[in-house]
Design a protein around this nucleic acid. Structure first.
Lengths: 214, 214
DNA sequence: TTTTCGGAACTGGACGGTACAGTACTATCT
DNA sequence: AGATAGTACTGTACCGTCCAGTTCCGAAAA
């Protein structure tokens, strides 16, 4: 048997702890410096682990990178699941969509989320499989989920005329986030748009969306 | 006097020609490999120029990079100027906006344009000044210009109720491009969305926009 | 329950091989 | 006579490997 995981959960062994430390440290280093700029020595140092241990857990730099990137899709989906359940409880479309817009803006402009997006985009040429999988199972599936939620709002009479719910979800996200997201993605994360501007963008996005689907 | 530019235009001297060759080669190399992945030796080789000449024209790698990135804003603005003049000649709002949507999708999903976007975004942490300036003088100013064009359409009665023309321009761009742009930015430029899907996205974006502003 | 023990996991550092930014220097070209 | 080519060179950084010594963990033994 494997002496590391004899009986109990796999989260307790020494190896699992080290592995977790390596993943955390590597996340930090990759997000900060990009793939080429990240140094395996720095990862090992930040994880307080010898380089040998790193290479025992991960075959090489690329495998470590892959695991980190694809490990983020689950939590992205979780965030969308949360706003989706809020939306299912709504009784007023305008209010619910405004809350949704605020939640999207707040969640997706956090510095670490932005750095992750930058990293995935930056390596789309070098690692198309990784970036493509991240988009498919993180980004796109989240929007599909949001579309299904909009579809349910239509079923309850809060929206109307949704021929393509997924596209409608993308349209809503585009209305809300195209301006602020581009701004923060290109500007090296100094202060993003002011709070009142975000509020105005959210409000006007809701009005346009409701003019078509309300 | 400067022997390179004695009387005639500055584009004719030997030095200017070499400089142009370096810029072209470096553009290719940077877009292909990113900042860290780009090698100055490769730039010199592709430009058919000695490394010494490269360093005579550009103090170091960062200066060369800066010049290339910021040199692209002008042509981006030119593209938007073109679609803006088309819009000013329009007589039917629905038709004109549909043409605009098609033009945006066609222009901004070209592989080189995508690689440039990826590059600027990727280096937003390392060179926030460069990325910020590119966004401000390329991206944002283009959208402001588009907003002014929409404002003129409103003045001619083809649109109505535009409290913030720049925001309306961002909203239109978001409706049209949020889905396909994210898809191609994250997917490592395999074939993007099918032509008929792009057409559908463009059409539905126009309908939503007109429901609010038509 | 406590002690002991064997082996796997880990450390720390060195090392080979490679790649690259930027400089230096001489011969050549325009 | 200045610009350029060609090329060698310096210094540095990093990936991935290797090895000798040490630490940890789980189970058998007391």
């Amino acid at each position: 048997m494997d002496p590391q995981q004899s009986g109990a959960g796999p989260e307790t062994g020494r190896t699992a702890r080290k592995r977790r430390a390596i993943l955390d440290a590597a996340t930090e280093v990759f997000l900060q410096n990009g793939y080429l700029g990240a140094s395996m020595d720095e990862v090992a140092a930040k994880a307080a682990v010898s380089k040998q241990t790193v290479y025992k857990q991960f075959a090489d730099k690329k495998h470590l990178f892959t695991e980190i990137i694809l490990g983020t899709t689950a939590q992205l989906m979780d965030g969308f699941r949360q706003v989706a359940t809020d939306l299912d409880r709504a009784t007023d479309a305008r209010q619910a969509l405004h809350d949704l817009a605020r939640a999207l803006l707040a969640n997706l402009t956090q510095p670490d989320v932005l750095r992750l997006r930058r990293l995935v985009i930056a390596e789309a040429d070098r690692f198309p499989d990784i970036s493509g999988a991240w988009f498919e199972h993180g980004f796109h599936e989240s929007l599909v989920m949001l579309g299904e939620t909009l579809r349910r709002l239509e079923g309850r009479g809060l929206l109307r005329n949704l021929p393509d719910p997924t596209l409608a979800a993308y349209q809503f996200a585009g209305l809300v986030m195209y301006k602020p997201m581009n701004q923060v993605m290109f500007a090296g994360t100094p202060a993003g748009p002011a709070a009142e501007e975000l509020e105005s963008i959210a409000g006007q996005a809701v009005e346009v969306f409701l003019a078509a689907y309300g």
